[in-house]
Computed example of a mutant assay.
Amino acid sequence: MNGPRQSILVISRHAHQGSSLARAALDTALSCAAFEQPVALLFQGEGVLQLLPEQDCSALRVRNLRKVIDSLPLYDIDCIYVDAEAATEFALSADQLPACARLLDGPALQRLLTQHDHVLAF
C-alpha cells in the first residue's frame, strides 16, 4: 500500500547561464511529477530570468529552459509561482510570464512555503 502523497515545492534561484542548478531544479520537478507527486515551482532571485521569452542561449551553449517551463502543464505541474519582487528587480512584466505563472508578494511567499511537505531549493 502506498503512503500519502507528499507535496513538494521546488525553488529555482539561479539563472540558466553559468550553472547547472536551474536545469537541476526543473529536472527534479519533472522527476517528482513522473512519480505522481504534487509538485510546484517557485522562481526567485535570478531564477526569474529563466522565464524571459525568446532567449537565444546558443552562444552560451546552454538550453533555453523557457521551452521546458512552458511544457510543465503537460506533466501536471500547473503551479508555477514567481517572486514578484524579483520579477520587478529584473524588469520582468506579467505578460512575459508563462500563462500558468502567478506572481506572489512576501506574505504570500511565506504561506506558500508552509503549504508544502518538502521544500527543495536550487
Rank of each mutant, 00 (worst) to 15 (best):
P98I: 09
I80W: 01
D117T: 10
E36V: 08
D56N: 15
R5Y: 01
A59T: 13
F90Y: 15
L49W: 02
R66F: 02
S19N: 06
A91L: 13
S12D: 05
S71Q: 11
G18H: 05
L21T: 00
G47E: 03
H16I: 14
E85F: 11
A121N: 12
R13Q: 14
E54S: 08
G18F: 04
S58I: 12
L65F: 06
L92N: 08
D27C: 01
L92Y: 12
A91H: 14
C79V: 04
E54G: 07
V68A: 14
L60V: 14
T28R: 04
F90K: 12
G45V: 02
C100V: 13
Q44P: 00
F90L: 15
L65G: 07
E36M: 04
P4N: 10
T114M: 10
I11Q: 13
A40T: 06
Q50A: 14
L109T: 02
R5T: 15
V82L: 00
L74S: 05
R13D: 04
P107A: 06
D56K: 12
I8R: 04
P38N: 03
A59P: 00
L26C: 01
S12N: 15
P73G: 05
I11V: 15
D27Q: 13
L65N: 06
G18L: 08
A33C: 05
A25W: 00
L9K: 07
D117N: 14
A40I: 00
A22N: 01
Q50G: 07
L49K: 10
K67M: 08
S19C: 04
L65V: 07
S19G: 00
Q17L: 15
A108D: 10
A15G: 14
L41E: 07
H16Y: 12
E85D: 14
L97M: 09
D78R: 06
A108S: 10
